[in-house]
């Protein structure tokens, strides 16, 4: 109940923040630009639109999660609004989870808006509603949930600028860590292989949530892969949130 109240207030805070609309504007622009790119390309223009559109949704969604998420908790502490909140009958983890779910709700709404623009653009090109695009968008959403958790973790002990940098690093590392997996396959067994394996396990692999290529090219995705990716996202999010709660629980608000 307390979590819900805080989540709804966080949603209200986020949707009254101008930065959200700025990002939404650029996301829409970026999705629409794909139409121009399609005109310039030889071959299947619809694929370009889908590819660029989905990439825009993913990128701007991540930016929204990072830029708003990193400010959420920090601002409460900095502006001392947290004083009156924590003094109410609530546990600290309820506060943090409320913030988390509030931002997740915001991102859901934003993703829905971007999806509508995207699907409409695709519709005008192919004259069919391509529902399977939503599968890729669903996994983008799972990725954004994880990024939100990361942003909130950093926000609970660091300033927004540093938190944004850390979260951006997490996002970039997450999208390139798959190359480590390739490396592990190539190097001979030994200490380095084990080390690489450990590093790969700890680092996030956000490519697990990337089904854009499969969806755009109409490839079939085995259900176990989908299931594995969803479970990976869920467990990683729970892990990061637990870490955030642990940091937050014993913190002094001076």
């Amino acid at each position: 109940m307390t979590i819900k109240v805080i989540a709804l207030n966080t949603f209200k805070e986020a949707v009254r923040d101008r930065i959200l609309y700025l990002l939404l504007f650029f996301a829409a622009l970026s999705i629409l630009v794909s139409r121009i790119l399609a005109l310039l390309t030889v071959g299947d223009g619809a694929k370009i639109i889908k590819d660029v559109g989905l990439a825009s949704i993913s990128f701007f969604g991540a930016l929204m999660a990072i830029l708003i998420g990193t400010g959420l908790v920090y601002k409460e502490i900095e502006k001392r609004t947290i004083f009156t909140l924590i003094s109410k009958p609530m546990r600290r983890h309820e506060f943090l989870l409320g913030k988390f779910f509030g931002l997740v709700l915001t991102l859901l709404v934003m993703l829905a808006l971007m999806s509508v623009i995207f699907l409409a653009l695709v519709f005008f090109h192919t004259f069919s509603v391509e529902w399977k695009m939503l599968l890729a968008i669903l996994y983008i959403f799972i990725e954004l949930i994880l990024i939100t958790a990361v942003a909130i973790l950093f926000s609970s002990f660091s300033t927004p600028i540093l938190s944004s940098l850390f979260s951006l690093c997490f996002y970039l590392i997450g999208h390139f860590s798959w190359s480590l997996e390739t490396l592990i396959k190539k190097i001979p067994a030994g200490i380095f292989k084990v080390l690489a394996q450990i590093v790969y396990t700890i680092l996030p692999d956000l490519e697990n949530f990337n089904f854009k290529t499969e969806v755009v090219h109409g490839l079939t995705i085995p259900p176990q892969v989908l299931l594995y990716s969803a479970a990976y996202g869920f467990l990683y999010t729970v892990f990061i949130l637990s870490l955030a709660i642990l940091v937050f629980r014993r913190r002094d608000f001076i």
Binding site: F83, I86, S87, D252
Partner: peptide, 8 residues
């Protein structure tokens, strides 16, 4: 702040 649980 101690009374309110803002600091321990």
């Amino acid at each position: 702040k101690c009374i309110l649980g803002l600091i321990f």
